Simulated assay, not measured.
Amino acid sequence: MADVRLRGAMAAVCALLLVACGATVAGTPRPLQVGDVERELVEGYFEDLNEAGTQGTTEQRDLLTDTQHPDFRDDDCRLPAGTIKVQPAMSTLRLDPEWTPPGADEHPRGVVLVVAVTLTVVQDGSEVGNQIGSQHVVLLNGKAYGFAPCAT
């Protein structure tokens, strides 16, 4: 008889757990989106990068070093000669949670975003090259980090 009561009690507990696990959460599900704060951090990153470029090669390289993602600062990167000007198409900004930097085995810490950009290389005040592509920016602890555009 005790065995039957124990089984009954266990069945009741299991039923309660199933009901609890199947409980719904109030609200409307929606996909993750880029918010205003994230957009402002990314815009600020590119504004700072371009402003440093107008100040000169040394200033821009210092900024690129300071804003290189902390987990990838030891990567050997040979920056292009001159400065770069980056024009992001902010309407293309989106999350990219599966991305890993080329040659890396791990996803960078933080929220990974990607945006289409036009990158212009400037030497001695003249534009010497343009490239259209995607650039990743990672938000970590309230700051935007990038991956320096290394020359190949």
Rank of each mutant, 00 (worst) to 15 (best):
Q123W: 03
L6W: 10
V111A: 01
G53T: 05
L6T: 14
Q123F: 02
E40Q: 11
G129E: 07
K143Y: 10
S126I: 07
E59T: 14
G133I: 01
R78A: 13
A104E: 15
V138T: 04
A20Q: 13
G103N: 05
Y145N: 00
L63G: 07
A89I: 07
L16M: 04
L17C: 02
A20H: 11
Q60F: 04
V111F: 00
K143R: 14
L41F: 01
L6N: 13
D66W: 11
V86Y: 02
G53Q: 06
L113K: 00
I132S: 14
R73T: 09
D71G: 04
A89S: 12
R61H: 12
G8W: 02
V115W: 03
T83Y: 13
N141S: 12
P31M: 05
A20V: 03
V37S: 09
T83A: 12
V111Y: 02
V34L: 07
R30E: 15
C150R: 13
V117A: 00
G56M: 07
T58K: 15
G44P: 10
R39A: 06
G44C: 00
G129M: 06
T120N: 04
A116V: 08
V115T: 05
S126Y: 06
R73H: 06
E40T: 04
T57K: 15
A148K: 09
D124C: 00
I84V: 10
L95P: 00
D48C: 07
D74K: 15
T83I: 13
V25I: 12
G56L: 09
D71C: 01
T58F: 11
A104V: 06
A20T: 08
D36V: 01
L140P: 02
T28F: 05
I132Q: 11
T24N: 03
G53M: 02
R7N: 07
T65M: 12
P70W: 08
V112W: 02
L139K: 00
G44K: 10
V121Y: 01
T28H: 10
F147T: 01
L79R: 13
Y45D: 10
D71L: 04
V37C: 04
T57F: 06
E40I: 03
